[in-house]
Design a protein around this nucleic acid. Structure first.
Lengths: 292, 292
DNA sequence: CCCGATCCATGAATCCTCCTCATACACCCA
DNA sequence: TGGGTGTATGAGGAGGATTCATGGATCGGG
């Protein structure tokens, strides 16, 4: 038997990543001795020294670099193998390869998805995500999924816009609204309130109506990006969800609205069939991990 | 630990090949009991039944087919890993020393590969190419690569047969179709049209249908070689890709079909993992050089 | 210059995985 | 209904993997 077993491959990869036997052992939850034994066995099987051991740990030799590259590929292939075989058996289609169409509202597409898709690509390079920005008005992103134009939608979920009965979905995160106004403005509350069509659920609107300090004069903008740029140029103030405020310029000031502030739930919707597909499940897993 | 070990993969492949536990055990020099235990363990790890057991032995389920394809690929990758690591360590250059399995359709195997493999052998004598001729119907050569039975496939690539998403590939050359008929025939267009199953993409068929000068009566032959020999013996005429016409005897006459002639793309497909291996890269380099 | 810290190496003991042996079970056919 | 084909399964043993305990090498600092 000259082939390396998966656990041996994993140890090689860990040593390459942690740049040392002890560190790799720690990362894998095993003993330095086990790593040493295993690497030595792998080297014997392959007939080549894979790591230069030194004071500062272990660094791959040229042969070791090639071995690491192969080890990573083999491990990934084994991972995909498990996923596909299970998928075929489940009748979920079997492959996680191919395009994965995501409909998202603007702030999610800009501030939530990039990191998620990056990690998804790292773990499942065979998935090719396509993001389409859909205004969250009317049927919104859920409509895109219902109409078969998207596999998964990032949507606001609440009592006024629940998950449609023919779809499945879940809440990812509940985020609060915050007041945003020009930084350093002397009396920000005298500024007009800037708003945009997609903003706010009816629950939020009710909260809104109760706040007597809010000016009634409002200006309607195109989308949250336009609102934010109007605020940052001193034109007005706005009540926006936190997701829209990620990466806001220093020229705006964000004020928490306190414990009674309105919130909204951001979640996902998909079809029951697609919910079992490996690609959609992988994406949901990454979404869940991202909002934690 | 949910990943399958190499010995488990080998057992799966053997069972798939020998179509039975007992036969696989015999081929592997082990007990039927060991095979049974191992397959059961693999099924438990993957969470799917891989073989239907019956009177006549074992046949793979759908999940089993996928598992087998992956198993072959993983084992192949481990093989390449060993060879390359040893090669790097020896300072012999680091390319895979050993067999490189190529699946090609007939005309490519006969007219494109010989020169390519000659140059490959000159540059990398340690690579031992094995060519298997596969009819380009159904999943064709790409299927051989997907199932782990070949490292690289020479395939026709087009809208009707794109590179499968889980594979990687590229176009090598776009070649035209030409009319071929017996040399010196007085009215070649009155001859029947000879064809063979692998011939022509749907795009080509569409062009074909538009040509009112083409006779509708057709004769079906086994392969392009048979077609060419029928044409050369005066039996009929044919529309064939240029690759099939290399080395055609002087008894046939080749007529260019003009600028509107149909074309097909000939390319290669391989797995993402093998695409990085030195042997496959060397072969692709030679293929690219050859068609220039 | 030695002390301590921080690496990796190694031998023995333990635990667990995998294989074999022996046997049971299911099915088909003469 | 017995013999021949196949697979399933439990018990036991051999070998591999991990741990424990320890040794050896190398470097930086007092």
């Amino acid at each position: 038997m000259t082939d390396l077993a998966p656990h041996e491959l994993r140890i090689l990869v860990a040593v390459g990543k942690e740049r040392g036997f002890s560190a790799a052992a720690g990362a894998l939850g095993m003993t330095q001795s086990a790593v040493s034994h295993s690497v030595r066995a792998s080297e014997r099987k392959l007939g080549a020294v894979l790591f230069d051991r030194g004071r500062a740990g272990a660094t791959p030799t040229a042969a070791g670099e090639r071995a690491l590259a192969h080890a990573r590929r083999v491990l990934r292939l084994l991972e995909v193998m498990g996923a596909e075989v299970r998928g075929v058996a489940d009748g979920t289609g079997g492959t996680l390869a191919g395009p994965l169409r995501i409909a998202a509202f603007r702030s999610a597409a800009l501030h939530l998805l990039p990191g998620v898709l990056e990690r998804l690509a790292a773990r499942h390079p065979e998935i090719l995500p396509e993001v389409r920005i859909v205004r969250e008005v009317g049927r919104g992103t859920a409509g895109e999924v219902m109409d078969g134009r998207a596999d998964l939608g990032i949507a606001t979920i609440g009592t006024t816009s629940p998950v449609p009965p023919q779809l499945v979905g879940g809440v990812l995160v509940e985020e609060g609204y915050a007041l945003v106004h020009p930084a350093g403005h002397s009396s920000p509350r005298s500024l007009p309130l800037v708003d945009w069509t997609e903003n706010c659920t009816s629950y939020t609107r009710a909260w809104w109506a109760e706040q007597d300090w809010l000016p009634s004069a409002t200006v309607e903008a195109e989308d949250d990006g336009a609102v934010l740029s109007m605020v940052s140029s001193g034109f007005g103030m706005a009540v926006m969800p936190e997701l829209s405020l990620i990466g806001a310029p220093p020229s705006v000031q964000i004020t928490d609205l306190g414990p009674e502030r309105p919130t909204r739930s951001v979640g996902y919707v998909t079809t029951p069939e697609l919910a079992r597909s490996l690609a959609v499940r992988a994406l949901i897993r990454e979404l869940r991990a991202a909002v934690r």
